[in-house]
Every structure is written in structure tokens, then in C-alpha cells.
């Protein structure tokens, strides 16, 4: 099929969406906080290396560790959702596939965040 649309029509497309800055800013906020939080998470994980089960549950019941892990899960849940959304938008152009992948992305990020948080809370309060 020949495309008879003018170049002006093509360049204007559907117009400006009026957003994008929110995601951009949230990605920057979660990356600055993420650098701090990942340092905390790595400290918690490396402290657990070589420890036996009781020591590990003890460590993860420490309020500071709980706070770091919960904040990290929330932070990364947001960051990874936006990041993967950008990747999908970059390479996937079929509208149905794109919509399905965007939904799956939000779902996966939410499951990771909630499952991780549930486990942390169980260890801390019911361990």
C-alpha cells in the first residue's frame, strides 16, 4: 500500500502526549535513592554469607535491615517497571503485543515487590 500521508501529518502524528517527565523524574529519584539502597542491600546480603539459619533470621529481624529491605523493594519495584517500559516502547511496535508486555511488566514488578515485602515481614514478625 502506498502511503499518501504528507510529511507534516507524519511528523505531527497523534500530537504530544503531555507526559513523560513524570516517569523521567521518578526514574531519576529512584536511581539516586537506589544507589544508596543497593549499598544497604549488598551489606545485608554479604553479612548473611556463611551465617547459619538462625543467624540469618536474626539479621533480617534487625529493624534497620527490615527498613532497608522494604524501602529497596519499593524503590526497585518502581524503577524496574519504568526501565522495562522504556525498553518495551523502544523495540516493540505492535499495539497488542506492546499492551500485553506493558501489563505483564507492571504485574511482574508488583509481584516482586509484594512477595519480597511479605517475606521480609514474615521473617521479622513471625519468623
Amino acid at each position: 500500500m502506498r502511503d499518501f500521508r504528507t510529511s507534516t501529518a507524519l511528523a505531527r502524528g497523534l500530537g504530544a502526549a503531555g507526559n513523560g517527565t513524570r516517569d523521567f523524574w521518578h526514574q531519576r529519584v529512584t536511581s539516586v535513592l537506589g544507589v544508596l539502597l543497593i549499598a544497604g542491600v549488598l551489606i545485608v546480603i554479604s553479612t548473611s554469607v556463611g551465617a547459619d539459619y538462625d543467624e540469618v533470621t536474626n539479621l533480617l529481624s534487625n529493624p534497620l535491615a527490615v527498613i532497608v529491605l522494604l524501602l529497596a523493594l519499593l524503590n526497585f519495584c518502581i524503577h524496574m517497571r519504568i526501565g522495562m517500559q522504556v525498553v518495551i516502547e523502544d523495540y516493540v511496535h505492535g499495539p497488542v503485543t506492546k499492551a500485553l508486555l506493558l501489563i505483564a511488566n507492571t504485574g511482574f514488578s508488583a509481584v516482586i515487590g509484594v512477595a519480597g515485602a511479605a517475606a521480609v515481614l514474615k521473617i521479622a514478625f513471625a519468623g
Partner: peptide, 12 residues
């Protein structure tokens, strides 16, 4: 992140 959450769930 699956490995990370798996770690937490395993401890729990």
C-alpha cells in the same frame, strides 16, 4: 530480582 526474592521467601 527473582533470585533476590527467592532468597527472602526461602528464609521466610
Amino acid at each position: 530480582t527473582i533470585v533476590f526474592v527467592w532468597w527472602l521467601i526461602a528464609i521466610a
